[in-house]
């Protein structure tokens, strides 16, 4: 027990550092995938057929293959196959590669949610706006946008909660996120070796962070429940 109390501050310190990397990946992914998803959504709904096919094929490929494989390909392909290591070396290089993989992957999932939200707004809303002499941009921002957001929030919550946990996949390219930090005490780190509880303990970080995310998104959903 005494050993445990000695190890605890060291372990927590390392896990906190790892968790910061996890959070960075989480926020960077959201910041990139939320707008990129909208672009892909509009692409897949474009009346110009080649564009919509292209967007749909991208979504099919990305959603149809494991994120882990995508991470590996995006990280290793430029350096090992093209002999052009564009990501740079070390942790920062791994972070950039992981961010790119996560942004592309999540943008594809988000695009489908956006598409559902956009197409879910009844045509009558647009027609009413037009008949009232409104511009299409006004109809989008003043009439349809909030209705879309309301439709999007529940499926988005699901996806964001999955993202929190999916960040752990970046471990596969040795990004030093929290799983990596927890695992390091098995192989030996900071004078601690062969200890497994730090790895198990990382689950609490995900759990608490997801609790916060759930409360925030639940609050947003409630805020939007004033209309139907």
């Amino acid at each position: 027990m005494e050993v445990f109390w000695e190890q605890l501050p060291v372990v927590l310190n390392a896990l906190n550092v790892g968790f910061i990397q996890t959070l960075k990946l989480f926020f960077v992914t959201l910041a990139g995938a939320l707008p990129l998803g909208l672009v892909i959504a509009f692409g897949s709904m474009a009346s110009f057929k080649p564009l919509s096919w292209l967007a749909r094929i991208i979504v099919w490929v990305i959603r149809g293959t494991p994120l882990m494989i995508q991470l590996l390909i995006i990280y290793y392909f430029p350096g090992l196959v093209l002999k052009n290591p564009i990501w740079g070396s070390g942790e920062s290089g791994r972070f950039v590669a992981a961010s790119v993989a996560f942004i592309i992957n999540y943008a594809c999932y988000f695009s489908e949610i956006y598409r559902g939200g956009i197409q879910g707004v009844p045509v009558g809303q647009e027609e009413a706006g037009l008949a009232l002499g409104m511009k299409r941009s006004q109809i989008f921002f003043k009439v349809k946008l909030l209705q879309m957001v309301k439709r999007i929030v529940p499926p988005m919550s699901n996806e964001v909660i999955t993202l929190v946990k999916d960040t752990s996949l970046a471990r596969i390219i040795a990004l030093q996120e929290i799983i990596f930090a927890g695992q390091s005490f098995l192989t030996g780190s900071r004078g601690i070796r062969g200890v497994v509880w730090p790895l198990f303990f990382t689950a609490f970080y995900y759990l608490i962070w997801n609790g916060i995310v759930t409360v925030l998104l639940g609050w947003l959903e409630k805020k939007l429940s004033y209309f139907q």
Binding site: P122, G124, Q125, A128, L130, M134, K142
Partner: peptide
């Protein structure tokens, strides 16, 4: 379009606005 007004079978009110906001919106934007 502004020469004509159209009342729809399915109302097509804007759900996120109150009755009076529905009436005011287009005119305000104009």
């Amino acid at each position: 379009r502004l020469h004509f007004g159209l009342v729809f079978q399915s109302f097509n009110l804007f759900p996120q606005y109150t009755a009076i906001e529905n009436v005011m919106l287009a005119k305000e934007l104009l």
